[in-house]
Write a protein that binds this DNA or RNA. Structure first.
Lengths: 235, 235
DNA sequence: TACATAAATTTGTAAGATAAAATAGCTCGT
DNA sequence: ACGAGCTATTTTATCTTACAAATTTATGTA
């Protein structure tokens, strides 16, 4: 999931701080000063500063001399940054964030499917079909089925030919993990296979409108299924 | 435009390197080593390292001992990062990137408008209307009209209630600047005002479907107008 | 009080030294 | 010639110390 990038001290602190910020650990007392960071996390100033700089680059922090380092309001966070998305997932689940994720998917994925129907080449279609077949073949293995499901959706983003759409793979990854984790307990995963197949067929036929509708149907159903079974939890 | 954050040496180098990477300056000879960076840009190692770390956080670079620092393939860049978006804009214009930007807008903004129609409160609707009125009142001043146009679209993203949509404001900002710069030379800016008004009216009436269609019409027209007048330039 | 000045706090920058990782090259035994 | 293992080299990673700059707070003086 996470890019290779070694488990260095800096990246370790980046993870720790990123998760803590997203959870809201610093909302009460404010973000620690450099010196405090070094003490509380046993880090050198170099490591502390570079981790803070990376979090600044992701919009989570801002720092100024004398004034200190502070957590930016969530409106300033780069929410589509893969790390930020993952940190959001790793904190306690909430229906709100799941709904927001799905609204984004509901905007992007149908359009991506429509573009894929117009542009996908054979290799890209094969990748999409491989994802679908993976879902079919792994009915008992939840993890494998989830991976195949993700592959299916990411393959469509790729086939859209628009690199910006592909930026949402981390978000889709996250949303699907949440979704599968819950829907598995309800109706199982197999129900959505025909819906996925409809998307593939439309793309194969170059049917942009059909692909768009079929993809929208998948997401709407997922959203409704979840809303009906899961009580809204505060967060 | 750019967040306040001082014109420190680190941020200056971040800008310089970010632009250079996006332009492709390091594609031939590879990215400089830390020591070379310090020499070529007159920076201390501290500054060089922190700038590189921020670019790493945005997905543009990766660094490993002995192997050096290298530019990641564009598929790895955080394209929706506001800085990256801006750097993409600041390099030479190309129809390709404009089309890609508009495809993203075509996915997000109609859905945002539909959600706004369902959820917008009075203050949010007023912000949208202020944008429209700004467009009306600044027919002669291109810069002011552009700012008002941006305000209109961003106000709708806000009114959608989904913070993830708002992440695209930098991209919309960029796309509109490109668009206006070109369409002004053609048909002027005023032609789109009725189309914008249609979006506002639909949102005021709580007409989600109408808002979605009206917004899609704006973007499609902008895309077609541009495609018909601007030859495809390589990049 | 008002204004200027000094002090204190926190991040920003610089520089030097050492550690760690990863590659390249070399030695040696077979 | 060949491969295992050791050595050297390159480059980033980390640590430390020192000083500069920015900004707020405190102080002192007219």
């Amino acid at each position: 999931m996470r890019t290779q990038r070694g488990a260095s001290l800096t990246y370790g602190l980046l993870e720790t701080l990123g998760q803590s910020i997203v959870i809201g650990d610093f909302d009460k007392n404010g973000f620690p000063t450099e010196a405090e960071l070094c003490i509380r996390f046993g880090a050198s100033r170099t490591v502390a500063r570079e981790a803070v700089k990376m979090l600044t680059a992701k919009g989570l922090l801002s720092a100024r001399p004398r004034q200190g380092t502070k957590v930016e309001p969530i409106a300033h966070w780069n929410l589509l940054d893969p790390d930020v998305t993952r940190w959001l997932m790793e904190r306690q689940y909430s229906n709100k964030i799941y709904r927001e994720f799905t609204e984004v998917r509901l905007a992007i994925e149908p359009v991506a499917a429509a573009l894929a129907a117009q542009r996908a080449n054979k290799a890209e279609i094969r990748a999409i079909r491989d994802g679908l077949n993976g879902m079919r073949n792994e009915l008992h293995d939840h993890d494998a089925a989830l991976a195949a499901d993700i592959d299916f959706h990411v393959a469509i983003l790729k086939a859209s030919g628009n690199p910006f759409f592909l930026q949402l793979r981390a978000l889709i990854n996250t949303a699907l993990r949440i979704s599968i984790g819950l829907t598995n307990k309800i109706a199982g995963h197999t129900a959505s296979i025909p819906a996925h197949e409809a998307v593939l067929v439309a793309i194969e036929n170059g049917d942009a409108v059909g692909a768009e509708k079929a993809m929208r149907a998948i997401l709407l159903e997922s959203l409704e299924l979840l809303a009906s079974f899961q009580p809204e939890t505060a967060h």
